[in-house]
Nucleic acid binder design. Sequence first.
DNA 1: CTAGGGTTAACT
DNA 2: AGTTAACCCTAG
Length: 492
Amino acid sequence: MCEMLDSVVASSILEFLLRRSDFSTSLTGECLIALPVSFPLSSRLEASLLLRRLSADLSRRSISLSTLHTLEHLYRLQRFPSLLPAFASVAVECTVAPLRRRPFFSSSSNNDAEFFDAVNRIWNCKVSDIEQSEVSELVSPAMREARKEMEAAVVDPALREELVRRETKESALEAVMVFVEEAGKEMGPTFLEAAAEAVLGWEREDSRALSNLDRSLRALQGKIKTLHSYKFQPTENDAEMHRAPRKMNASGSKVLSDQGNLLDFLLLVYTKMGEPLTPAIDISDGSNKGFKLTGCSSRGDHGEDGMVDAEQDFCIDNPTTSRGKGGDDKNSNDEFRLEHSSPLPSDANATNNNDETDFSKKVSLSDEKPRCNFSDADTTTSLDGFKTKKRSLMDRNATASTYEWDSGETEFGQSLHRGKEMNKLRPGRSGEGLFCRRRRRIWNPHEEMTLRNAVVQYGAGNWKLIKASHSEIFSKRTEHDLKDKWRNMTKF
DNA sequence: CTAGGGTTAACT
DNA sequence: AGTTAACCCTAG
């Protein structure tokens, strides 16, 4: 009972977070992992996830096949009438986009080939599949019109030229934006908002009431970070650690239960609503609008596809580990504990350059072999002193890049290789430091999982974007590292 | 900025 | 000695 209630409460919170664009996507993703949401997700929560993904596409001004896919899944979950124009618009843009590309050494015939391929995949295969599925109405009259035009463009270069000039991307962005707004309305208020109105008589316009709710939720988000620290504590059993637990442990529950305001409020809601919600909330149709709350379960139906999709976005699958044993792994665990051991990690900028130093003070890394050729005492020697050592014939050439330093210990000297600018760009090196190879850091499961999800969300190749959108988690990784890691993860 | 090839260290 | 993950360099 209590567990079920936890799950319902967690779902309500998540739904609220997802529907509020002012809560960060990454943190909301963390919440999904940390909160005891039971799977399969409710269709409502799943729809909120997909809507959030569309919002992310909009904010990046990105229209891609993933957008189209998201729209289709959403429609399978809920028959939003306002989705149809967006679907058609996005399908057109996905088809026309290859024509606009002007790659370095690509002729227009390459673009044409990609266009033909897109027409085949989207308008031939995809649309046919949809027509034969239970969501055949997704192929609207507008879609049929567009299909004719796309097929005509395959044999008509002039029409292709015209399509390139048409602002299909703008239209698609606009259509998706309209849909996201409409969908928000069609889905009605989130459970928390509705419950607030119903139980406490809060008006949504009552800014004080809502800002209280906001404050509680923001505090909760902070606590969620702490929750993560509990979750990813290394355990004696390595396999145990790699299995991201879906249920929070006792400490986690305590953290949540400390969120008195919000949880008291939610409990009050559930206590008062042992039976279906009062008519003040439209609960008549749980699959579409409002909520159906019987007992403690507000879970609705779910589409299987959609669930898979939602998991891709905020995957909590078992992370695979590239290297599960040996000294390196221990090292990685220790580092991981550092990253999550402080109650509320400060922001990435504040911790980037110094936490490793702090770490070596706080946590004994006894089996970490020092790879720097100088002792600790050497690291405090003057520039001149350093240079003398560097020139030893026994030392390797600086350009061979064989020195590896623990960052934070190289506060001296100048780069013999590339200058400090380059080092500044590299996490885990000090800005003023000598050029040196960074200390080898084994990827921890959390990083791997984040990368996997980010690639699903943003696509492989958008390393800068991925790094930027998970700047805290990847604070010690360069875009390069992300690319290399992905290459390793996808080998064979 | 990214892809892809090269280098190095840490393993088996 | 061989293999591999992590790191580095550089062309486009």
